[in-house]
Design a protein around this nucleic acid. Structure first.
Length: 401
RNA sequence: GCGGUAUUGGUGAAGUGGUUAACACGGCUGACUGUGACUCAGUUAUGCAUCGGUUCGAAUCCGAUAUACCGCC
């Protein structure tokens, strides 16, 4: 059964009457027990965390980005792939760069809002830094200050050189402001790109000496016909798993995931792209998503938001406090006895090293919080009490609403 | 004692007669969901040492006072 060089998914237990499940994703660099949260290390490392820190929060996998690593891909390949190059020897996943199509294009300068559909307006075409054509995406790299291009073939070549255990097909994420008509067009293109991704991927997926898996990505916005039809189409293709993509309104998330997962093959893993709020994760798990990733835990930590069992706190408001961050937490930061007041002082310190220490300690805490959530969700599924776990967790975290 | 120079918010400061006193840092609010993010948005001096004067109008000009620093007896 065990084959270190192969990728496969094993379902261990299901949530009765639901799409959700607990399982194990086997990859060449180790197993991922699902549900699982993958820590985001865009450029091959999680900001302000060492690989030892990442192990200390019991991370199972790291997600990096093909777009951000594209210019280093040959160097990474020459070192034997992302695991060896980065020093993270566990399972890894790379994103295709599809998200950047939106963040540099229609969503330039904005946030992917989940709450306020009415306020979302696409960036004017002439002001965008990314432009989509059938071939792929032409974009202006604001950091390198030059034009560049990525299409499905380029994305696959880049990802296969980086050599993560799981790759994402090159897709186009539409924004909440895009019309049904535009979503039809973009989705058809994403599906054609899926075929091209798969084809190109086959040519290179063994280049580094182990099999690199490929997930197809489902788009389709908030429309049931689009979501179901794309899920059916991609389900027929030879993908190793599926990415669930899109910019969602919170209230739509569960239903959209349900449409997708009802159509997808049960025996392949599904990754919900870019979400990590506890309610989103728990809905995701219930509706059949196996893995998650998100920048929010670390970004929000850096910006002063600390997660606790009974809701988030703003660390800046705790000057002089001797309270622990979260008395229920088992993270290295909390176990070392850091208080809210101490962390506040580090965050407010004009000293760069102090700030870096704050970023490190707070990121560790928030990551562990989300990782623990997925671990507990897994245990709950195994013990057949997921529903109860979810209800209690959300009640504690969000309070009575 | 005499002369000179200075005095703008929590801080560094721009501003030499004409709308709501620039900008930066700090403070406070709020955002943050496949990282363009140690970021972003908003807010923060009814007042320019004090008192009086000139003027349609003064942080800006004049006088006195206070304080600080620099020269000279």
């Amino acid at each position: 059964m065990k084959n270190d060089n192969k990728f496969y998914f094993e379902i261990t237990k299901r949530i009765p009457g639901k799409l959700g499940r607990a399982g194990i994703i086997h990859t060449p660099h180790g197993d991922i027990k699902t549900p699982a949260f993958m820590c985001v290390g865009t450029k091959g490392e999680v900001r302000f965390l060492s690989m030892d820190d990442l192990k200390s929060v019991q991370a199972q996998a790291m997600l990096s980005n093909g777009y951000h690593l594209r210019n280093q891909s040959f160097e990474i390949a020459s070192k034997g792939g992302l695991a060896k190059w980065s020093g993270w020897d566990g399972p890894t996943l790379t994103d295709s760069g599809g998200f950047q199509v939106m963040s540099l294009g229609s969503g330039l300068g904005k946030v992917v809002s989940m709450e306020r559909e009415k306020e979302v307006i696409n960036t004017d075409s002439k002001d965008r830094l990314a432009h989509v054509t059938e071939d792929g995406v032409r974009f202006y790299d604001p950091f390198l200050q030059r034009e560049d291009f990525i299409g499905p073939e380029e994305s696959m070549q880049i990802q296969c050189r980086i050599g993560a255990d799981v790759h994402m097909a090159f897709d186009e994420l539409t924004s909440l402001a895009d019309s049904y008509e535009y979503n039809v067009e973009a989705l058809a293109r994403t599906e054609r790109w899926a075929v091209r991704s798969l084809e190109e991927h086959k040519k290179h997926c063994y280049d580094l000496g182990y099999y690199q898996a490929l997930y197809g990505v489902l788009q389709g916005g908030r429309w049931e016909d689009l979501r179901r039809s794309t899920a059916k189409k991609l389900a027929q293709m030879d993908f190793d798993g599926y990415g669930l993509g899109g910019a969602f309104l919170k209230e739509d998330l569960g239903e959209i995931l349900k449409w997708c997962c009802e159509e997808l093959p049960e025996d392949k893993p599904r990754h919900l792209l870019g979400l990590s709020r506890p309610d989103d994760i728990l809905i995701g798990v219930e509706m059949g998503a196996d893995t998650f990733d998100c920048v929010a835990p670390t970004r929000e930590a850096r910006h002063g938001r600390i997660y606790t069992k009974y809701g988030n706190i703003k660390i800046s408001k705790f000057a002089g406090s001797t309270e622990p961050l979260d008395e229920n937490c088992d993270c290295p930061t909390c176990k070392a006895g850091w208080t809210r007041g101490q962390l506040r002082d580090l965050m407010k310190s004009p000293n760069r090293d102090d700030k870096a220490k704050y970023f490190n300690l707070s990121s560790i805490h928030n990551l562990r919080f989300i990782l623990r959530l997925t671990e507990e969700a897994r245990e709950a599924i195994m013990k057949d009490n997921f529903e109860e776990y979810k209800e209690v967790f959300l009640k504690n975290y969000y309070g009575e609403k």
